[in-house]
Amino acid sequence: MKRFVLYAEGAGELGSTPGHPLAPGRVLPAELEGPAHVLVRRCCRELLDVAEHALRFEAPLRHAAREVRGGDLRNSKVLRRVLHWADPSMRPDVAIVLVDQDGEEDRRSRLATWIGDPLPTTPVVLGVAVEEFEAWLITDHAAVNLVLELREDPWVKTESMRPGHAKERLGRLVQASRRGASAPELRLELAKQLDLQRARAASRSFDRFITDLKQAVARH
């Protein structure tokens, strides 16, 4: 069983959270998995040959008793802390930190420096979406049209969109959707349907994330 923990900036990646958050280490039930969990699951299953039942997400560590928020991932001390499990039996096999670049071109190198000095015992995969996670979700134009039941013309490569543009575009597309589903449901469905190979080819940041994930999984 490969045990994963995922930190991300908000509900857009993590999906809904229960009224009472799970204790760290508890297995995250499928209904609490968000688009980012789904993408990681699919990458492991389809690209890394990890069987569906051989992977699970666990509730991440907290900071000062509360759930980690987006701002916490911008604080080197807090970020390092939540990548350290005091009890080896509770330590996951892979910890994933997924953030948006948000126009900060040095964000990856800055976070990588924070995480790597010194390296935690837990393998960490750092994903920095250019410019934001929504850019990954709409990378595959065909999947967007299929999921949202639209007939939109192809758009430019999402990585060349200015910061905030992919988020805005996804918002508009969701509003225009004929599917009659909520925005969180549609985001989840996009994560399930997008063509991973196409997304890798179209997004360098997504490709790098998959490559790093593959290395971390292979180490276990």
Partner: peptide, 12 residues
């Protein structure tokens, strides 16, 4: 602080 992180157990 280590205990409050939940990485030791003993939390709700």
């Amino acid at each position: 602080a280590v205990w409050l992180s939940g990485g030791l157990g003993g939390v709700p």
